[in-house]
């Protein structure tokens, strides 16, 4: 698919796209973000006690954080009632997690989500958790709802591994998505197996990876205990927000602007080409809850 070139200079001149590019490609000051009316709600919840002294997750705090985020997102004070607005007892729910061994979706969080789905009336037999086996998992193949949950990290080829990219395994051959640094990942969300099914997106930032080196793209030196989660309905808005946090961390760590390499073009195009959601910070209502120290956004 041929598209017009978008350059740094164009972004600097064009306020309509400057805010998105400023968020994804380089560190445009936040005060330059224009104000718009219609906004996608994203909840950032943080808790400084979510990791114990051995850096293990405290499941009760994970539960508390998710409940806080979902109730605010949905506008219900009771978590059970909030989840009843997300799923119905007749749903067949696939929890799409991520098993990358260096930074996987925490099993504690998977259990908390499963518990809330059951609390909302979904029978346990109709709940599945999977990542790379979704195409051979009968439950995912007949699912009516998906919960998309994974950690935030930088990625060799797509810039970041986050919510939009988490559905790449719904393709028979994920490598077909690799040209142009995975630019069209959002197109996966239009596949029949996926389209319209995602009820909730959770981007995990307990210990995000802000930089990657070597073939395994991982060093603990490049993670930090951010102790947060981004929760919302719009995966593009959440990914865009996550990238802003990563960019701020990179600037803090390296002491200079350090763009993601390569830039996360797929998030930009998820908004401007595929219209999956908004990547524009000016169109995102970011609600911050909990621990504020080192919030970076």
């Amino acid at each position: 698919m041929k598209t017009r070139v978008r350059t740094r200079r164009e972004f600097l001149k064009d306020t309509a796209t400057a805010t998105i590019a400023g968020a994804l490609y380089f560190s445009l000051p936040e005060h330059l973000f224009a104000q718009e009316e219609k906004k996608a709600r994203v909840v950032l919840v943080r808790n400084k006690n979510v990791l114990d002294t051995h850096h293990k997750l405290r499941i009760e705090i994970v539960q508390q954080m998710l409940d806080e985020a979902v109730t605010v997102l949905v506008g219900e004070s009771d978590p059970v009632q909030a989840w009843k607005k997300i799923v119905t007892p007749t749903d067949i729910v696939g929890i799409k997690s991520n098993i990358w061994d260096a930074l996987c979706t925490p099993p504690e969080l998977e259990r908390v989500i499963e518990g809330r789905l059951i609390g909302a009336g979904v029978p346990q037999k109709n709940i599945g958790i999977n990542d790379r086996g979704v195409l051979s998992d009968p439950l995912f193949l007949k699912s009516t709802a998906l919960i998309n949950v994974r950690p935030l990290r930088t990625h060799h080829w797509s810039g970041v591994g986050s919510l939009i990219k988490n559905y790449i395994v719904f393709l028979e051959d994920p490598s077909t998505m690799h040209p142009d640094t995975c630019a069209d990942l959002a197109s996966i969300w239009k596949l029949p197996l996926v389209k319209g099914k995602t009820r909730l997106n959770i981007l995990v930032l307990f210990t995000p990876l802000f930089h990657g080196i070597g073939p395994h793209h991982f060093s603990p030196k490049h993670t930090w205990a951010y102790k947060g989660m981004l929760v919302g309905f719009d995966p593009v808005a959440i990914d865009s927000t996550g990238v802003r946090i990563l960019m701020a961390k990179r600037k803090e760590f390296f002491g200079e602007e350090r763009p993601l390499s390569p830039p996360p073009k797929h998030i930009f195009l998820a908004d401007t080409r595929h219209h999956l959601g908004t990547a524009d910070p000016a169109k995102i209502e970011l609600i911050k809850m909990g621990w504020e120290e080192g919030i970076l956004i």
């Binding site: 598209t3 070139v5 978008r6 350059t7 740094r8 590019a21 490609y25 380089f26 080829w157 640094t181 350090r258 763009p259 390499s261 390569p262 830039p263 073009k265 930009f268």
Partner: peptide
């Protein structure tokens, strides 16, 4: 893809 490693110039191979 690596042209933008230090400084974003453009999103295509100009």
């Amino acid at each position: 893809a690596w042209l933008n490693s230090h400084y974003f110039v453009a999103d295509q191979n100009i």
